[in-house]
Write a protein that binds this DNA or RNA. Sequence first.
DNA 1: TTGTACGCGTTATCAT
DNA 2: ATGATAACGCGTACAA
Lengths: 348, 348
Amino acid sequence: MLKKKITLKHIARELDVSISTVSKALKNSEEISRDTKEKIQAFAKLYNYKPNNIAISLKNKRTKNIGVVIPDIVHHFFTTVVKGIEKYANQKGYNVIVCLSDESFDKEVINMEMLANGSIDGFIMSLSAGTQENDDYNHLKEVTEQGIPVVLFDRVTDEIDCDKVVIDDQQGGYMATKKLIDEGRKQIALLTTHDYFSVSRDRNEGYRKALLDSGLEIKDDYILRLPYMDIEEQVISDFFDRIEVDGVLSVNEIFGINAMRVLQRKGYVIPDDISVIGFTDGLLSKHANPSMTSVAQHGDKMGEIAAKMLIEKVESDVEEETYKTEIIQPTIVARESTLNPNGAGSGN
Amino acid sequence: MLKKKITLKHIARELDVSISTVSKALKNSEEISRDTKEKIQAFAKLYNYKPNNIAISLKNKRTKNIGVVIPDIVHHFFTTVVKGIEKYANQKGYNVIVCLSDESFDKEVINMEMLANGSIDGFIMSLSAGTQENDDYNHLKEVTEQGIPVVLFDRVTDEIDCDKVVIDDQQGGYMATKKLIDEGRKQIALLTTHDYFSVSRDRNEGYRKALLDSGLEIKDDYILRLPYMDIEEQVISDFFDRIEVDGVLSVNEIFGINAMRVLQRKGYVIPDDISVIGFTDGLLSKHANPSMTSVAQHGDKMGEIAAKMLIEKVESDVEEETYKTEIIQPTIVARESTLNPNGAGSGN
DNA sequence: TTGTACGCGTTATCAT
DNA sequence: ATGATAACGCGTACAA
């Protein structure tokens, strides 16, 4: 019942020819006679011969595997990026090895070391919270010094010379804040994380810039910094008790959704009394009640671009020392949590 | 600047010893003299020698890679399963290669063929919609006949002899329906998919059984079958116009959330007028407004168990022909979309 | 104590 | 037209 994988050697033995003849015949080499080729090809087909990937990898020093290291997979944004990577990579004949750092520096290091020992041709990754907190990128330096191409996406660092794909987070923050201002909102709160997240930093910056540009004051007590995990509703509730707001910008989806609930419970009607915009246009924004206007990150596009950049580097033998940073423009998906002064946006 | 990976051969050449001496020394073999060992180990450490995974794979015929083939990764349930698999697998020194079938039969076949040629030691997978629709499992048969272990989870089939992990979907459907009945609901609608999803079939069965056991009538016009993707709210709205309901069971999260919105728009108050229970306890259920009571699938646990089963098979050289099916018991996470007659359930 | 030789499966180069 | 050989990197049985 067990039909073990057949190798060139088996075929050679069975057909009483040499291994190299079999190899050539299966590659349809001109060197081999019509007869032998047909015989060998038929036999190979019959026994469903397929070359062993590992052997080929060893020989070619190319695995056709891409290592993807992300902080978390139970997270809509990363998930869309992985999907984008998969799509492009598969199409190019690459497999995707996914490793999770769980936001931990140590796990990120361990995973990368595992993969760097020949398992993959290159990395696509987004830095873990721990790594950004530590501000330690030696594991990345080691990998790039070995000549393994790396593409960073979303959570990146200037410390490493490599290709990068980011969205213009500052622009996203700016656009969203501007939209609130254009609706006539003047008291706009910002829900954000701590500053070691590069993305939050940039989004905050956009928020400030938009306020400034519109001659509005930046008030520190209108900014709430929440821990990335384990949000406590009470903290949000207290925050909104302290200040009077008519607009809320959240640097992610979760904070935004939670803010909407808290505000609704306090009796505010969204968007009549308060407009809310979140980041990371995911399932929650789409299915919230009211559905939440949000800044789309285009994770799938990001993944595709990252994969494209990586595979190009992997397949070009030239040791270029030139790195690009692709900046994706964010988009606002207008939904029910904001007013619609210009009647725009379908939402879905 | 480029510090290419060093091999045994390099070390041997540099230290003027044989490759096997180096190999043994690095394994701390008793055969090698203290002196040489120290010299070699120091050198290896200095140049950060790490054995090449590919070479080891070729030699051992073991890749330490697990192939995971799932229909979709932008999907909370699958994502939690992947996380569970990763957790267990990493701990055991395995990498996880994730491939997406995109619910397509063809893609599933192609991906499996790619991986089956030596890239992985075994598969963990959940059948694509296309595969279940086609009812064609030859690609799985081929793989198992080659002696590659397979573990199916969630969307499984009786056609293949292999280890399986499922939740007791019928029990989940039963429990949920029973809960609605216990709340005093008598007109319970069922939102489901088409029958070729094994999970839906089982959940439906639980629904029927619970009604029967409670002496309630099973009415066909209380059952709405929706396409898996692209739900149209209008269809749901029309459905609820045709019938009078006080309870809704949805075989997934999305249908449930959509039903809540539609019902709320029609003026019903949840859970005062109508209770709603969904399946797949994910982000949407948790953050819905009101938050949705739902049947938890315990994807992480499922993933861990699947990984455990697979790795056990992979690492046991005995060719057992005995396969287990692990059945995970579902749990109801009580939230705000149902009444709380017994004051149970924390939610969150 | 150290080294030689072989094998894992494949391909490419160089004989025959 | 076919075959022998070496090489990819490693490990190990066996020889010295």
